[in-house]
């Protein structure tokens, strides 16, 4: 059988679509792991990035740490955390959060820093207090960058959650590693395609989110800046 036939056969096997090891279940697991890690990472990194961006304090440290984190191999971070904490879902989640925080933090920080000082001056001059400047001016203007950071982190998390299956948790990576162990190439390729699909869905999700959440007044400027 050719590779295409193997993959087609795997996708068309109804047994692969049901039960706890079926495609929908694995897809749901993968989504749940990723979403949970993203929620925690965003809850940490967005407020932190807003704070460092707004006050200008600790920004260099945050950006430096995040840039250094970029040079670390994700599998190293993941296996180290799992080895230190033991096999299980929590260590995997911790590793995912650790990897997701830096891009969100840096982009949020840079996004807030990039707000035109003239706008801050206008906001303060009109009598906005610090939190009002942050929520009514800096956050909405920085939103495209915040979303870019979240998207970058989400792509990273979806990818790393795949590798997490190697240590025994669920998700789409299971198809890849189980298929590899059983020498079933249709399953390996099918799992890989599903992972790729999920990554594309993440892009679509963030594209929609940006259409909904970012003011049209910013989108034209953004087209010029281009991400």
């Amino acid at each position: 059988m050719s590779i295409y036939e193997l993959v087609a056969a795997w996708f068309s096997d109804p047994g692969n679509w049901t039960g706890p090891g079926g495609i929908p279940a694995r897809f749901a697991e993968h989504t749940a792991y990723s979403a949970a890690a993203m929620a925690v990472a965003a809850a940490i990194a967005v407020p932190l990035g807003l704070a460092t961006g707004h006050t200008g304090r600790g920004g260099l440290l945050a950006v430096g740490l995040a840039n250094a984190a970029r040079a670390l191999p994700t599998i190293g971070v993941m296996f180290l955390v799992v080895l230190a904490m033991g096999i299980g879902l929590v260590p995997v989640q911790v590793a995912l959060v650790v990897l997701a925080v830096p891009p969100i933090l840096v982009n949020t920080h840079e996004g807030v820093r990039a707000v035109d000082p003239g706008l801050r001056d206008a906001a303060a001059g009109m009598g906005m207090r610090g939190p009002q400047v942050l929520l009514r001016l800096e956050l909405p203007v920085a939103l495209p960058m915040v979303l870019l950071g979240l998207r970058t982190a989400a792509v990273q998390v979806v990818s790393t959650a795949t590798i997490a299956a190697y240590v025994g948790v669920g998700g789409l990576g299971r198809f890849i590693f189980d298929g590899q162990n059983r020498q079933e190439f249709g399953m390996v390729a099918g799992g890989s395609l599903l992972v790729a699909l999920m990554a594309v869905l993440v892009l679509v999700f963030f594209w929609l989110l940006r259409r909904l959440a970012v003011s049209p007044g910013l989108r034209a400027r953004e087209a010029a800046v281009r991400e």
């Binding site: 590779i3 792509v155 795949t162 890849i176 799992g191 890989s192 395609l193 992972v195 790729a196 990554a199």
Partner: peptide, 15 residues
């Protein structure tokens, strides 16, 4: 392309 996880592309190319 950049968004597609490397592990997926590696395994798809493997054969």
């Amino acid at each position: 392309l950049y968004a597609v996880p490397s592990i997926a592309l590696f395994f798809l190319l493997l054969p």
